[in-house]
Amino acid sequence: MATSTVGLSPSPLRSLTSSPSLPPRARIAPSLPFASRLKPRLALSPLPAARRRPAGTRRPRVSAALTSLSETEPVSVPADSGELAGRFPSASGVYAVYDGAGELQFVGISRNIAASIAGHRRSVPELCCSVKVGVVDEPDRVALTQAWKSWMEEHMTATGKVPPGNESGNTTWIRQPPKKKPDLRLTPGRHMQLTVPLEELIDRLVKENKVVAFIKGSRSAPMCGFSQRVIGILESEGVDYESVDVLDEEYNYGLRETLKKYSNWPTFPQVFVDGELVGGCDILTSMYEKGELSGLSKK
């Protein structure tokens, strides 16, 4: 066991005997290939429901607390999403999703299994027919990873196959938070000769992307209150947008002046939709308040 990680239980045994707790540092990085958007729900997820085996079955492995994949009964996914919460626990653990033919499609871990299944059902309803759930007590990162590994290994040993949703490059099941997107760069670098004029690079960028926000600073750390508000609005509306940092003097050198001329707009931020300037912070705020941005959401 990797004992160097902060927040681990000192021994696997203890994870079965101590009371369940969820230290805030035991977060799962969203970059894990099997984690489906854990972060936003972390604070809301209740303590894991007790589902323990009798004391006699303890073995010095975290997964000892977990029923094996083959022994877990599948639960059918209800047609009505309102019934999901009643059928699946809002606790942490591992879950395996099966399609209509009973083929295992994806094994994931979550801090809120019911919410994750609800998300999958929304995005790929045709692949979500039934789900096996294994609640993990003391769900720190290692315990969850262990649980995931044990189900994956069990399935791969039995079938010789990786579930299609867990194959690398398959993004059907894993939604990366939009914030993780990098800011776009217009040029390969300040000292590189441009073969295409900057105006044209701007023109292509705003026409090839549905929503582009030219902001001061990066989308993860805007350097101006107006840019920050624009990012906040786009994020809260769930808009899938691209961002460009007009202060990036290395990769967007000269962009501020060129963009002001291109858009005939003297200030930043600037938001483009379908190649057209929609406006800056004031206009975006006003559209947001009138509900005019909901059409941009990809949901």
Partner: peptide, 13 residues
């Protein structure tokens, strides 16, 4: 709104 703001910006170029 974009045209209105542009009128203001133009006046203050």
């Amino acid at each position: 709104l974009v045209s209105r703001h542009r009128l203001v910006y133009d006046a203050l170029a």
